[in-house]
């Protein structure tokens, strides 16, 4: 790069030194400048990732006795809605019956609740399409219906109809006792 411009200047003593060595210095200096710029870019990008306090957001505990059979309670967890649903035997049966139906995101009902706790369904309450909050009990399958773009979920929270690609997400949670769960 230097050659072209040097040539355009009053430069009567054209350098007799080895041109490859001369270029090396300029290329190395240019590369060092580019490297420094790149090294600075990373902190500027990374600062937009979740901060330490955001990552440390506490897990929540939830008392299940508040949820009547057939009802759903919505709590806020990590800034998103969390569905805790107490399913009736009929709803469970309807979900199990469809385990072998043509599912877009195949999963059995058994895989979506804790062993022996079939009545309790805990789901992240955001539609897997574009993040709206589905309404409970709506849609063709009696599970959830997302009003934004018409996604239908069954009573196991599996996607059955509409644009959403995946089943409603089951978060990491554990039963602390028969009536208490800890999410996160």
């Amino acid at each position: 790069m230097a050659d072209t411009v040097v040539g355009a200047t009053p430069d009567p003593h054209a350098p007799g030194a080895d041109p490859s060595r001369r270029d090396f210095i300029h290329i190395a200096a240019g590369a060092a400048a580019a490297g420094a710029a790149l090294a600075v870019v990373w902190p500027l990008v990374d600062q937009m990732n979740p901060a330490g306090d955001t990552l440390a957001l506490a897990s929540i505990e939830f008392d299940l006795t508040k949820v009547e059979p057939g009802q759903q309670v919505v709590v806020k967890w990590r800034g998103k809605p969390l569905f805790v649903r107490n399913r009736t035997p009929e709803q469970i049966a309807a979900a199990v019956k469809d385990d072998n139906a043509a599912l877009r995101d195949p999963q059995t009902d058994e895989e979506r609740h804790k062993p022996g706790k079939a009545e309790w369904l805990v789901l992240v309450g955001t539609c897997t399409h574009l993040g709206c909050v589905p309404t409970v009990g709506g849609g063709d399958y009696g599970g959830w219906f997302c009003p934004c773009h018409g996604s239908h979920y069954d009573t196991s929270g599996r996607i059955r109809k509409g644009p959403a690609p995946k089943n409603l997400e089951v978060p990491t949670y554990a039963f602390l006792s028969d009536t208490k769960i800890k999410v996160g």
Partner: peptide
């Protein structure tokens, strides 16, 4: 400015949050 809070109750603490929690803050 992405992390700072211009409010008398939070300004000081938000600067300290930048120093402690924000990546490379």
């Amino acid at each position: 400015a992405m992390h700072y809070v211009p409010h008398v109750d939070y300004a000081f603490a938000s600067v300290e949050r930048i120093m402690r929690d924000v990546n490379y803050g």
